[in-house]
């Protein structure tokens, strides 16, 4: 899926940056980088490389620093994300309660590996260290909703609900 990236939205974002976030030469203060990346991700759904290169040229913030920040924080994506994000826990509690099985099942249903997005752009599948609700193990989170005490058949049903024919939006 190759799309040409439109720089119009990012230019708008850059244009709206307040003077207080800029250096005297008009370049952008490095401290403002994170909010800037968040705005860009909100706009594009992820952080396209071409946009980041453009941001680096305009802002004067080296591309290496931008890359370092993006790979440090989990909240940033360098690939387009699906409409729904499925996070499957692989923490200790979940692992003990057969979490790996759940993860395998999800992979199988969606036909993608961890970290990938389905071709129809519907789902992105990730695994995380601990979702913080160990008492519900094994746990999966879809967008901002938790699903606990899961079995293989349950997770299949839940995913189906999110499919176009399902009843979830």
């Amino acid at each position: 899926m190759i799309t040409t990236i439109d720089l119009e939205p990012v230019n708008k974002i850059l244009a709206q940056i307040e003077l207080s976030e800029k250096l005297t030469n008009g370049k952008i203060k490095p401290a403002y980088l994170i909010p800037l990346l968040q705005d860009i991700q909100d706009e594009y759904g992820y952080l396209p490389r071409k946009v980041l290169e453009h941001v680096s040229t305009i802002s004067g913030i080296p591309l290496s620093r931008i890359f370092g920040v993006i790979t440090f924080y989990e909240q940033f994506y360098m690939e387009p994300q699906g409409k729904h994000t499925i996070k499957c826990c692989r923490g200790t509690a979940c692992h003990v309660k057969n979490g790996q099985k759940i993860s395998d099942t999800i992979s199988e249903i969606l036909g993608i590996a961890e970290g990938e997005t389905t071709e129809d752009g519907l789902f992105t599948f990730e695994t995380v260290a601990c979702l913080g609700t160990c008492f519900l193990a094994p746990v999966v989170m879809i967008d901002d909703q938790y699903f606990g005490n899961l079995t293989n058949s349950e997770i299949t049903k839940i995913i189906n609900k999110y499919s176009p024919k399902g009843d979830m939006p």
Partner: peptide
């Protein structure tokens, strides 16, 4: 030159260039 950066965090950190 700022060609290099750390990528990732905690145990998985490594040195690399942007992208």
């Amino acid at each position: 030159c700022e060609a290099l950066t750390f990528q990732g965090r905690s145990g998985e950190v490594l040195v690399t260039t942007p992208f």
